[in-house]
Amino acid sequence: MIDELNIQEKDAVLDIKNLSVAYSKGKYAVTNVSAQVKRNKVTAIMGPSGCGKSTILRAINKMHDLYPNIETEGQVFLNGVDTSSMSTIMLRRKIGMVFQRPNPFPTMSISDNVIAGYKLNGIKLKKFEREEIVKKSLQDVTLWEEVKDSLNKKGTFLSGGQQQRLCIARALAFQPDVILLDEPTSALDPVATKKIEELLIALKEHYTILLVTHNMSQAARISDYSMFMYLGELVEYGKSKEMFINPKDKRTDEYLTGKFS
């Protein structure tokens, strides 16, 4: 599969090897997935509900560690380094995450939300550093113009779409290598969704984006590569353009043509 995609070792930001995740002993949500994620591309993971899309995503930044019942096997390499040898804290600073529902910290102002990663970790910032990070991150998510006069207002005053862009800005503030997005537009209206999609396409110039979506057309619109998952298995992985037109696996074909969802 790797050869097909022609991803060179140096191009692979993430290298997932034989990843399996079980929510309880013997009950696997993801079985034996191997895939490489290419630098500066948007890669979409799609598939029907419960196929393990989010589970893979959350295995990459070790969110499963929070829940002692969940067992993860296999390896994930970030820029060639085995993530199990990295501290969880450092790993999560290099891999940003955006969730299904916008979740700005309700007690924090807009600018504090952007630098929440620094604030909560107790990393001291000088005034000009803080201003620079806030401005750049908000500009990157095209939110700067909308909020530059209300940086001290609470983040929860913003609309849903703005909140989600704020959450992306929060993830960008560490300048991560990879941004994981778990169905980031499923709680948003079409206009806000379009904005986020345009944003992701623009962001891939500097970041690698891994996006979980249950929305096929979204995957088709914005992704360079697509993974199709079914029942915890990675069924097909390829260039989105080819996969949507000419899927190789029967199950992918059936999913794309709406025979099941």
Binding site: N61, M63, L66, T88, I89, M90, L91, R92, R93, G96, M97, F99, Q100, R101, N103, P104, F105, P106, T107, A116, G117, K119, L120, N121, G122, C167, R170, A171, F174
Partner: peptide
């Protein structure tokens, strides 16, 4: 909401700081 807690974890914030700086203020 758990999602607020997870937002903190995803930023690499250690557990005790999540309690002190996210859960308690919220």
């Amino acid at each position: 909401p758990d999602t607020i807690k997870e937002a903190g974890f995803a930023l690499g914030v250690p557990y005790h700081k999540i309690i002190l700086r996210v859960l308690i203020p919220t």
